[in-house]
Structure formats: C-alpha cells, structure tokens
Nucleic acid binder design. Structure first.
Length: 414
DNA sequence: TCTGGGGTCCTAGGACCC
DNA sequence: TCTGGGGTCCTAGGACCC
C-alpha cells in the first residue's frame, strides 16, 4: 500500500504559521515577479481567487476582501518542507519525496491503517504546524485520488479493498486524475467520459493508443495493479535550470547579457552545490506569448562543452556569447534561462587530450567565489558583466522574512 | 502596464555506426 | 521494378507534474 501525504495550501500555510493573526483570514502567495497566484488559503479560495490567476486581474478582489498578499519566499518553504519530510520519514519504511509539499510513503506490512494514518497526520501537524492530508491505496495513482478525496473529509482516506476503490472512482472527475492534463481531458470530454470509473472501463489498448505507454500505466494503476514504482533515490537529476522573467522587457543585447550572466552564475553555483559538472549548456529566450501584437521569438541553442564544467567563468562566457547570437533587434524579450544537461559527478572528470586544460585553476577561483559569497551574502563577488543597475530584476514586493533561516529574522517572544 | 519556475517522461526523426 | 537490419546518440516537441 502507498500513502500520498500532501501539505494543505503549503505556501499559504507556511506564511501563516509565522503570522498567527492571519488565521481564518484569506491569504494568497504570488509566483516570482509577483506575476500570478500560486497558493491560496481556504478563505481566499472562497473569495473566488483561482489557481494561476494573474495578480493584476484579481487586484479588485484582493482589495474588496482584504486578502493578505505574499511574494514567494522559497527559502522559507524549502526549510518548512524539510521539516515535514523529516517527520514523515519516521512513520514509513520508505519515503519517496515527490515535490516540495508531497511525498509517497510505502507502508510495507503495517497493519491497522485506519488508526495508524490519523496518528501520522496528527504527529506532523503537531511537530511542524503544517496541516497535511493523507490518502492510502494499493497504487500511486489511487493514492493521489484518495488524497484528493481526503481533503473533503477529515484529512484521511484509506482505500484498502475493492469495494472502497470502486466507490471512490465512481463519481471522481477525470480531470482531477493524476496524469490527466488539458489535452487528454479534451479527448475524454469528446468521448463523453466524465468519471474515473468510466475511464477505467475503456480497454487497455485504447489507453496505449491514445495516451502512449503512460496511459497504459494509468489503466493498470486505476485497477489497483502498481505500474509506477516508488523512487527513493530521486535526487539523481537529469538537468538543472535557472530561468526568470524580467521585470520589464529587454530590448538591448547588453542588458540581456547582464541577465544571462546572473543566471549562468547561479547555475554554476547550483552545479557546485550538487557536486556536478555539465557537458551541455542550453540558452533560451522568450517573448511574451500573451501579447499578440508583439513579434514572437523563442530561440534556443545548446552548446556542447569540450570538458564538463561547473565554473562560473566558463558558463557565463558561453551563456553571454550564445545569447548575443540568439538576440534579434526590435524584439521585446520577457524571459531567459540556462539549462545544464549531460550532468557528470565532479569526481569523474573526463579530460580532453586535445584541449589545454587548466589543471584545476578554475576550481580554485570557484571555491573562493563560493566561500566569500557564503560568508558575506550571495552576490558579494560576481562577474562584472552582471551589471550594476539591474532594472530587469524580479519584482518581490510582498516578501516575508526568513523566519527559520536567518538569525535576524527569528521571531522574538515577549 | 501587469500572466512563474523547475522538473519528468515519451515519441519521432535525423545522423551516424557496423 | 526490385537497395538490409540493428543499433546509438542527439534534438525537438508534446504532455504532464507541482
């Protein structure tokens, strides 16, 4: 049996934990650049704010209901997430951390789940202050479904026999199923398939033909046969991305180079943190696809490195060079990013016989960079091409404090 | 004026290999 | 008239996830 544990309204709950006067009040958390709503308390949902709503379109609702607004504070959410996962890990023989606010727990032969699961839930809420919901079923897909249903009751739903599963899928809307997005839903709608029960009654081959092998797995999972295994070692990443929207449009290649310098520097830091180097560096630019009156341009290029690297100077110089080639005059760019792929462990550096490598000099520079920036704050020492003014930098007008990660921000008790 | 960021997996097609 | 079979690697694009 699998348990899917999910934090309720995670970012909103994390913000409210340190502002208890907001209990019972509507609050929302905005995406980076204060662009759109990515988390809502139950009270905010009741005000009619929807997931993904652009902030400027719901500004009137926010004012009308006095909704408290927060910018994303990922340092805080990351730290709270660690606490929740640490607590969950004590209750399950194996834990598969699936996202910042969700984990699959494997229950092995644990008996008496109807009593055990509520205990898990109570313990996590007591120890972290974050409310969680838990759904239990024989497969991951059904556990996700049980979890959704649990949110309407007391936060726990255990589907441990066929009768309970059949009852649960009977009226469950297909678009709420794990693995069904907008495109698949459109197809189901055209065929008149509304519920999970109706969907799983389709033949296996129909799933395979219409939804590739992913659909075939879903079909098996809906019938209680596990097709998606637990992944306890999820941390081996395939790629690492740093990308951001700009506060304003960028139309100047020099300013674009500033942004790419910052992103590539952050990417190099992330690689070094994970003790990885990359063999490929992809650079991409985006225009605003919501503006039909703007010329659109989504160029991208993947550069192959001769030797895998995680050095700031290497990645920055490639990113700046590539971005200059991708840039087209007269286009308003909205977003840019860098993606590192072909990741290899730092310890397994493969040298190139035809390349005059630097015998580790760049590693020394990177180490100095990391040491100074750790001691004196991120960005203390940086590449000159990053610029000084940075008018394109993210908007973060409603940022809360680093309550659990910065000494000066710790809450004082009178 | 104002619409996020970071991922995964799958498929198809091209280039290349023997 | 009629031009193989079996691979790998890479890229681009689609769909989905939180």
């Amino acid at each position: 049996m699998f348990a899917l544990c999910d934090c309720n309204n995670f970012y909103a709950s994390a913000e409210r934990l340190f502002r208890p006067e907001l209990n019972g009040k509507p609050i929302v958390v905005l995406s980076n650049n204060d662009g759109c709503v990515i988390a809502r308390s139950e009270e905010a949902k009741a005000c009619g704010i929807k997931m993904g709503d652009p902030e400027f379109l719901v500004r009137d609702l926010i004012k009308k209901f006095g909704i408290e607004v927060f910018s994303s504070n990922y340092v805080l959410y990351g730290d709270m997430s660690e606490r929740v996962m640490h607590n969950l890990a004590r209750w399950f023989p194996k834990l598969d951390v699936y996202s910042i606010d969700e984990a699959f727990g494997w229950l092995g032969g644990i008996k008496g789940l109807q009593h055990y699961i509520p205990e898990v839930r109570k313990s996590v809420v007591r120890n972290t202050g974050i409310p969680v919901s838990i759904g239990v079923a024989p497969t991951k897909t059904l556990a996700k479904l049980a979890n959704k249903l649990s949110k309407k009751t007391n936060g726990v739903m255990v589907l441990d026999n066929d009768e309970k599963i059949t009852a649960a899928v009977k009226e469950f809307p297909v678009h709420d199923l794990w693995g069904v997005g907008r495109q698949h839903y459109k197809k189901f709608e055209a065929l008149g398939i509304r519920t999970a029960a109706e969907l799983r009654n389709m033949p296996e081959m129909w799933f395979k033909q219409n939804m590739t092998i992913m659909g075939q797995r879903m079909w098996n999972e809906l019938w209680g046969r596990p097709a998606i295994p637990l992944e306890v070692m999820r941390e081996v990443k395939k790629g690492i991305t740093v990308s951001r929207s700009f506060r304003n449009y960028i139309e100047d290649p020099g300013v674009l180079a500033e942004a790419l310098t910052l992103y590539a520097s952050r990417l190099a830091e992330k690689l070094r943190n994970e003790k990885l180097r990359c063999l490929y560096l992809q650079v991409f630019l985006y225009t605003n696809k919501n503006r039909e009156d703007h010329p659109q341009h989504f160029p991208s290029h993947t550069h192959k490195l001769l030797i895998a690297s995680n050095s700031t100077t290497d990645l920055v110089s490639i990113a700046v060079r590539v971005s200059a080639r991708l840039f087209r005059p007269g286009v308003k760019y909205r977003k840019a990013g860098v993606i590192a792929t072909g990741l290899v462990p730092e310890s397994e550096l493969q040298l190139n016989a035809f390349y005059d490598h630097d015998h580790g000099k760049k590693d020394v520079v990177s180490a100095v960079l990391d040491k100074l920036n750790l001691a004196y704050g991120r960005g203390t020492l940086r590449m000159a091409t990053e610029g000084y003014e940075k008018k394109w930098r993210l908007k973060h007008e409603y940022l809360s404090q680093g309550y659990t990660t910065r000494w000066s921000d710790i809450i004082k008790v009178k």
